[in-house]
């Protein structure tokens, strides 16, 4: 790292007068970050990898034993875990697809000038600024079978969204879409406003219709940033815990993160939980990697 070019400190500056060099200032920023990363991220990561090969339980004092790959073997042959993964996959697909469609649609609507645009944009961003647990609790009330506004508005009588095994997962996904579409909207807006206006003018002169312009100009030019939104939302949706945990107890809506939580903090099976966490991590990495590869390909165009 010795070859990193540093901007040289202005010798007349106050920092220089105090006897600080560029290097001192650089270290001032880098060392705390490194310490933080090592203590709170890298160390636990490696430590939990170690635990995942043991039968360690955090609530017991008796010595733990090294069990090799037994945790992994048990987990991967456990049908229950696989059903959790299938539930999670359904959830990710529904929720992320919904967020992309709603978020990008909102961005298309907002990508023009109209009165009170700033205010409306800010209001639309509010859901994603709320605490997920609060959102979960509120939507539980909205979904309430007997007096919830949702059933009232859609005339669904006393349909029990959250305690019906068929609908619980989708009810949670809808809440997630409500909460996180603004995030996709925000990124899409940035992407849309980065498309130069003169390209649309050129397309209009070239007699391209709305749909042709959208599919040939807008989408290709916005797609890199849409992919980034997709990566973020997939990763987040994969590890959704808070919303789902506060909203429903249906086994059909038991996401892998909830399963992991139960295993770690209700059954106190710490070693096995670490192994499960690693399996989840590898899956998320694999999916993200696919996206990033595709993103690089899109960017090259």
């Amino acid at each position: 790292m010795a070859s990193v070019a540093l901007t040289h400190l202005d010798p007349a500056s106050r920092a220089a007068a105090r006897g600080w060099s560029d290097l001192t200032i650089r270290n001032l920023f880098i060392i705390p970050t490194l310490v933080f990363l090592i203590v709170f991220n890298i160390f636990p990561l490696i430590y939990s990898l170690g635990y995942s090969f043991t039968n360690f339980a955090a609530n017991r004092t008796e010595p733990w034993q090294f069990v090799g790959l037994q945790n992994y073997r048990e987990l991967l042959s456990d049908d229950h875990i696989w059903s959790n993964f299938v539930i999670t996959a359904k959830y990710v697909i529904v929720s992320v697809a919904g967020q992309m469609i709603v978020g990008f649609g909102l961005a298309l609507l907002l990508n023009r000038s109209f009165p009170m645009k700033g205010l409306i944009t800010t209001l639309l961003l509010l859901p994603m600024m709320m605490s997920a647990a609060v959102v979960g609790l509120f939507w539980q009330l909205l979904y309430s079978p007997s007096w919830g506004p949702i059933n009232y508005v859609f005339g669904l009588g006393d349909f029990a969204w959250l305690s019906n095994p068929d609908s619980a997962l989708y009810a949670v996904a809808i809440t997630d879409i409500w909460m996180w579409s603004p995030f996709v909207m925000l990124l899409s807006l940035a992407g849309l406003s980065a498309v130069p206006q003169h390209l649309y003018e050129a397309a209009a002169i070239d007699r391209a219709g709305w749909w042709y312009t959208f599919t040939r100009i807008t989408l290709p030019l916005v797609s890199p940033i849409l992919l980034i939104a997709l990566i973020f939302r997939t990763m987040e949706a994969f590890k959704t815990f808070d919303i789902a945990y506060t909203m429903t107890t249906q086994p059909t809506a038991e996401l892998i993160a909830i399963r992991l939580y139960k295993q770690a903090f209700q059954q106190w099976d710490t070693g096995k939980s670490c192994a499960l966490a690693y399996i989840v991590l590898i899956m998320v990495l694999a999916i993200t990697n696919l996206y990033v590869k595709y993103l690089n390909k899109v960017k090259e165009r």
């Binding site: 130069p196 003169h198 390209l199 003018e201 050129a202």
Partner: peptide, 9 residues
């Protein structure tokens, strides 16, 4: 156009 406005992709 002055800026050519070629479609970059």
């Amino acid at each position: 156009f002055q800026s050519f406005s070629l479609y970059p992709h």
